[in-house]
Design a protein around this nucleic acid. Structure first.
Lengths: 188, 188
DNA sequence: TCGTTAAGTAAATCACGATTTACAAATCAG
DNA sequence: CTGATTTGTAAATCGTGATTTACTTAACGA
């Protein structure tokens, strides 16, 4: 009566995808060690054993999840002129959106086995493209600067929440973010 | 012959301190979950059971270790005029020094049980004092900005190492850090 | 429809690490 | 010196979570 037992149609690709998206969601809000496969598969509505079948291991699942979430590459589609403003808006946006590449990245630090994976994917999927997008002198360094500020901000916004960065931030914070980022963009 | 069995003299205070310092060292280079009590007590040269006796639990040990390492309060003893330069030098210094408040802070994000502890201690021991030291307008926000940049930098310097921030950094990186920090200091 | 294969599940296994327990040895007060 | 108390240790316990195994059931081609 209450529970509608939706006997999900069997479909490997769909199931794999459900696991992947659940993993991204959970890994975005919880450190690797605290995100159990039980949690992830429960959210996906599947059996924990399927992680092994479709991804091989928790580590591989993490890698797939991070790779996919970094693929979006939000930063590189923003025009150079409004870069600071746009990114600041993006970062201080308070409307849900639980799948967050930045927090997933912060949590990548939480297990030695996945740190290497994270660094590799970060360089390949984000630092590299961002570097190209920036162009000009010292592009690699400036890309790293943008990553550092963004990551630091998100650390104290969502993971270790400090008042000034929490929730809907003050215009001061937003403007500082915008200006600091734009300054890096223009520093070529 | 080879091993000098130094039968350490029994002293509760000394032993407690040895554990605390070993914990700070290990917690500075490894995420909470990867830093086992076995590792820590091995480094301290004592039995794992003593953690329970002297600190109650791993969590409490972490709290004590972080509280103590944050007490140093290096940032607040630096003059306002040279703040950016001094902190940049401090952060880009390449000479050992394995006990690092910043990396310990980064790793605080790696376990949900210690996140709250870290935030509380961070506000009490660092953000508060730093805020006072900064003075002027929006001191709390500016303190948070300094924390964010510092933490982001260290994340990509020591935990998820990116080329531009690794090892002995370029003058460009050092100068950027100095100027960005000084700008926050002067933004009153 | 039938049988093979793919997809899914429940439960066992396995490893690991924090914490507890029961005991041993050293220290110290008297 | 002696016995109570403190400090220390080795080994058992306990829970947790990833991974494997043996099995069931659905899908699909012939």
């Amino acid at each position: 009566m209450e529970i509608v037992e939706t006997t999900r149609r069997r479909d490997a690709a769909l199931t794999r995808d459900a696991i992947l998206r659940a993993a991204q969601e959970i890994f975005s809000i919880r450190p690797y060690g605290d995100a159990s496969l039980k949690d992830i598969t429960a959210l996906a509505g599947v059996n924990p054993a399927l992680v092994s079948r479709y991804f091989g291991s928790k580590e591989k699942l993490y890698e797939a999840a991070l790779a996919d979430i970094l693929d979006a590459g939000a930063l590189t589609s923003i025009s150079r002129e409004t870069f600071g403003e746009s990114v600041a808006d993006l970062f201080t946006d308070d409307s849900g959106g639980s799948m967050n590449p930045l927090t997933m990245l912060v949590f990548s630090a939480s297990d030695v086995r996945i740190q290497k994976i994270a660094v590799r994917l970060l360089m390949e999927k984000t630092l590299g493209p961002l570097q190209k997008h920036l162009g000009g002198k010292n592009a690699e360094m400036r890309a790293a600067q943008i990553m550092a500020i963004s990551t630091g901000f998100f650390t104290y916004r969502l993971v270790l929440p400090l008042a000034p960065f929490e929730g809907s931030v003050s215009p001061h914070v937003r403007d500082w973010l915008a200006q600091t980022l734009q300054m890096i963009m223009d520093a070529e």
